[in-house]
Design a protein around this nucleic acid. Structure first.
Length: 575
RNA sequence: CGGCCCGUAGCUCAGCUGGUAGAGCACGUGACUCUUAAUCAUGGGGUCGAGAGUUCGAUCCUCUCCGGGCCGACCA
């Protein structure tokens, strides 16, 4: 890849700096004692607090006015203006540091350290008056320059492709993005704090699993060479965490990356983060209350209140949340009571409601389909949907009083599933039968049905206390709490297709000369895209090529003698 | 997987019924000691995503491909 003019200029500056004996990438620690945010919030011109600050950051703008200049540097807390005066940073005879280094060899994007004192300019802006300037890292690539005045941002970098592929640039030039990711981390800390305060244990379980259990999803498959066996990237960690409850822990939780080999869209990334927690001697009713506590605490920790904006909506995360059974929800939005229907009747009902269905779908899946199609999106304010059909809940305890249903809830917020929980099935015989039923479903063609994990059944046979477990989609909750429309906006590095490969090596000059092409025409040819002889072979008509070359000559005022079609044709013949 | 839209200078974007490209910022040079989207003067910078076709001639029209976005399908 040829360098752009701006990149070339920066590389030249780099060399100039080295010639002046300035290391553009010094090794030494640069001690700082102040951050931009702290200065801007706490500077008081009647006090002497910031008389000797040392700070470091990236140059984000420059306004040079002869022998004095203003610039802005950005550190991890934000931007602050700095003021440089030639005779202040160059007290002696030698004015090179200002005249050459600052004015010409430094650029927007370079990282510098400054020492000086804080003052307020005539226009009232808190500014660092620089006495000492140190280059800490030279930037060789021009940064997009985003300007702002009176709250209006100019030339903001909004191209999603650039923002997601080069997140570092996004983070530099779009300050709110850094805040989103700080909030994401705060969210996780808020939850961890709560769990730890209750004595629950944070654990780690395998990501490479011989059996991808605990959920219904297509896994990624990999291969271990030494064991010579397939391993799956986990789709869930549920079965491992429950083994730990069998092992005697009161409560265990994990912030886990899961991987699912499925479609990608605004709410799905192939790898995503789930918090799963399992607590002994609890049931799903207890877990609903606990979930309300988790969510409302997180909202308050991030926003100071539990009423939060999302898009054009206000979502109230103050408990208690509405609780609706799945069958009631369907009744509410379709007017149909499906509670007594058998499979054929349900299928007809689906057809009548225009809910797509296939013969492989059993009763539970049909109910799920109706709910997904007709109900789910209506639940904008937080709502627990409770009591799911057994067929789609193979790890859930049967309902204590409602036959055919399980003690399961999903928390819906803004029409999306945020959490999923149940009273865990701990009857090992029932569990094995449910796994076997899943196997039958998979033979029937349901490629999401679960594998049988016999070791998990063995663990249950030793006895697991009654337990409630819950999973929260951290990415989706982060979207909600940071008011972001896409999962890509809450993942630092969302999955993307690789960028296209850049061009192959160029042909040597001698290869052009061998064809009888005059040396002065080689550059124009390359500029027109014929960087290799092979490309020239495919150039086609000599007339067009001659025309293009003459046009290039004229446009760039090269002053070369014009080429005839015949001459160009003679080159092409020799290839 | 299907529909719609997008890809032009480092960045943000114009570009008419087809005649090989413009602006602002950024960048180079010069001026300027409190500026702030600094200002003024001046200059350089483009395989118009890639390839093929139609045409005397394509950034523009047609097709294929690549990458991205939105919507739908699939999918928790």
């Amino acid at each position: 890849m040829p360098l752009s003019d701006q990149e070339q200029i920066r590389r030249n500056s780099l060399e100039e700096l080295r010639k002046l004996g300035i290391n553009p990438y010094p090794a030494a620690e640069y001690k700082t004692n102040a951050f931009a945010e702290d200065i801007l919030e706490n500077f008081d011109s009647t006090k002497t607090d910031f008389a000797g600050v040392s700070m470091a950051g990236r140059i984000m703008s420059r306004r040079i006015m002869g022998s004095a200049s203003f610039a802005e540097i950005m550190d991890s807390t934000g931007r602050i203006q700095i003021y440089l005066k030639r005779d202040d940073i160059c007290p002696g005879e030698d004015k090179t540091l200002y005249n050459s280094v600052f004015k010409h060899l430094l650029d927007i994007g370079d990282i510098i350290g400054v020492k000086g004192f804080v003052f307020k300019t005539q226009t009232g802006e808190i500014t660092v008056h620089v006495k000492e300037l140190t280059l800490l890292s030279k930037s060789l690539r021009p940064l997009p320059v985003v300007k702002e005045k009176d709250g209006t941002v100019y030339d903001a970098v909004t191209d999603p492709e650039l923002r997601y592929r080069q997140r570092y640039v996004d983070l530099i030039v779009n300050p709110p993005v850094r805040d989103v990711f700080r909030k994401r981390t705060q969210l996780i800390q808020s939850m961890r704090e709560l769990f730890n305060s209750k004595g629950y244990l944070e654990v780690e379980t395998p990501i490479l699993q011989p059996i991808p259990g605990g959920a219904t999803a297509r896994p990624f498959i990999t291969h271990h060479n030494t064991l010579d066996m397939p391993l799956y990237l986990r789709i869930a960690n549920e079965l491992y965490l429950k083994r730990l409850i069998v092992g005697g822990f009161e409560g265990v939780y994990e912030f886990a990356k899961d991987f699912r080999n499925e479609g990608m869209d605004r709410t799905h990334n192939p790898e995503f983060t789930v918090m799963e927690i399992y607590i002994a001697y609890k049931d799903y009713n207890w877990m609903m209350n606990f979930t309300e506590q988790i969510i409302s605490k997180a909202a308050i920790d991030l926003h100071g209140k539990a009423e939060i904006p999302y898009g054009d909506k206000i979502i109230n995360l103050n408990p208690p949340y509405r609780r609706v059974t799945m069958l009631d929800a369907i009744k509410e939005f379709t007017g149909i009571d499906i509670s007594a229907m058998d499979e054929p009747t349900l299928r007809k009902t689906c057809d009548g409601l225009n809910v797509p269905n296939t013969p492989e779908m059993g009763k539970g899946k049909l109910i799920d389909a109706i709910f997904g199609e007709k109900c789910e999106h209506h639940f904008v304010q937080p709502t627990f949907i409770i009591d799911y059909p057994a067929e789609t809940s193979p790890l859930t305890k049967m309902h204590r009083s409602k036959p055919g249903l399980t003690e399961r809830f999903e928390l819906m917020i803004n029409g999306k599933e945020i959490a999923n929980a149940y009273s865990e099935l701990n009857d090992p015989v029932d569990q094995l039968e449910r796994f076997q039923e899943q196997l039958r479903l998979s033979e029937k063609g349901d490629d999401e049905a679960m594998f049988i994990d016999l070791d998990f059944v063995r663990a249950l046979e030793y006895g697991m206390p009654p337990t409630s477990g819950m999973g929260i989609g951290i990415d989706r909750l982060a979207m909600l709490l940071t008011n972001q429309p896409s999962i890509q906006d809450v993942l630092l590095f969302p999955q993307m297709k690789p960028e296209g490969q850049k061009p192959k090596a160029e042909s040597e000059e001698s290869e052009y000369l061998d064809l009888g092409i005059p040396a002065e025409w080689i550059l124009p040819l390359k500029k027109l895209g014929f960087t290799t002889i092979a490309m020239l072979r495919e150039a086609g008509k000599a007339g067009k090529l001659a025309n293009d070359l003459n046009g290039f000559n004229k446009k760039n005022k090269l002053g070369l003698a014009g080429l005839s079609t015949e001459v160009v044709g003679s080159w092409l013949e020799k290839i």
